[in-house]
Amino acid sequence: MAPKQLPAVLLAACAVFLALAAPLLAGDPDMLQDFCVADYKSLQGPLRLNGLPCKRPENVTANDFFSDAVSLPGNTNNPVGSAVTAVNVEKLPGLNTLGVSMSRIDYAPWGVNPPHTHPRATEIIFVLEGSLDVGFVTTGGYLYARTVCKGELFVFPRGLIHFQKNNGGAPALAISAFNSQLPGTQSSAVSLFGASPPVPTDVLVRALQIDGGVVEAIKSKFPPKN
């Protein structure tokens, strides 16, 4: 006895469902090797990847997986009173394809890690010394903020503007972890006032509802990077 054929309408519905589902199932592929140490020399040519090419296994050493960058405090003698020491795939080649990285953040007394975003990662911060006032702003404009003390954690969701402030008169220290080998950092102030070429002053005047002279004064504090 021959099996019944599916009605044409049902077949069409299945085809539409599979077409819509395919993009939802797409994502980073699982690793196909134990590691893929970044081969920076390959980037000197025209080849560009969404990530970094791998070293040949025979050229890999234990030092490709090692860094002492977070062992030393950063210099907080700057206008914001904080220093971020990032350890990502650009600094530690063994992180390539592993999807993790971290940073050390040092704060001078009352120092601030200014509002910024990480477009490619969620961040979890662990306070080692001192006490921080932290917060992030949702896309709807709601601020979630609280104090985080020594030994405590706080999470900043991926892509949302967030900040930290040392709320004490002594230095503070924190470690941040990210679920990306290269989370990226976009400073809100630098993006608006230090872009190259610059964001037009009249755009910022209307967006921020401030005087053009104030915009120019702020821009002078964030010279564009060449």
Rank of each mutant, 00 (worst) to 15 (best):
A2R: 15
K4R: 12
L6V: 12
P7I: 01
A8C: 10
A8R: 14
A12V: 07
V16L: 11
F17V: 12
F17E: 05
A21Y: 11
A22W: 08
P23D: 14
D28A: 11
D28R: 12
P29F: 15
D30P: 08
Q33G: 10
Q33S: 15
D39V: 09
D39Q: 09
S42W: 07
P46C: 11
L47W: 08
L49Q: 15
G51L: 06
P53E: 10
K55A: 02
R56L: 14
P57R: 08
E58N: 07
N59T: 07
N59G: 10
T61N: 05
A62M: 11
F66T: 09
D68R: 06
A69S: 08
N77D: 11
P79K: 15
G81L: 07
S82V: 00
T85M: 06
V87W: 08
V87T: 14
V87D: 10
E90C: 07
N96S: 06
T97Q: 05
V100P: 04
R104L: 03
I105C: 02
D106Y: 03
D106N: 06
A108Y: 08
A108G: 09
G111D: 08
G111K: 09
V112C: 05
P114E: 02
P114M: 00
T117G: 02
T117M: 10
T117S: 13
H118C: 07
P119Y: 07
R120M: 14
F126C: 04
G130K: 15
F136N: 05
V137E: 09
V137R: 05
T138K: 04
T139D: 13
G141M: 02
L143K: 01
Y144V: 07
A145E: 09
T147W: 00
G151Y: 11
G151E: 12
G151K: 11
G151W: 11
E152H: 05
P157N: 00
R158E: 15
G159P: 10
L160A: 08
Q164P: 04
N167Q: 08
N167M: 06
G168K: 08
G169W: 02
G169R: 06
L173Y: 04
A174I: 01
A174Y: 01
A174H: 02
S176I: 02
N179L: 08
S180R: 14
Q181F: 07
P183M: 13
G184P: 00
T185H: 00
T185K: 04
V190T: 12
V190E: 10
S191H: 05
L192T: 00
G194R: 03
S196I: 03
S196F: 05
P197Q: 02
P197C: 02
P200D: 05
P200S: 01
L204V: 01
V205N: 02
L208F: 14
Q209A: 15
V215K: 00
E216H: 05
A217M: 13
I218V: 15
S220V: 04
K225C: 06
N226E: 13
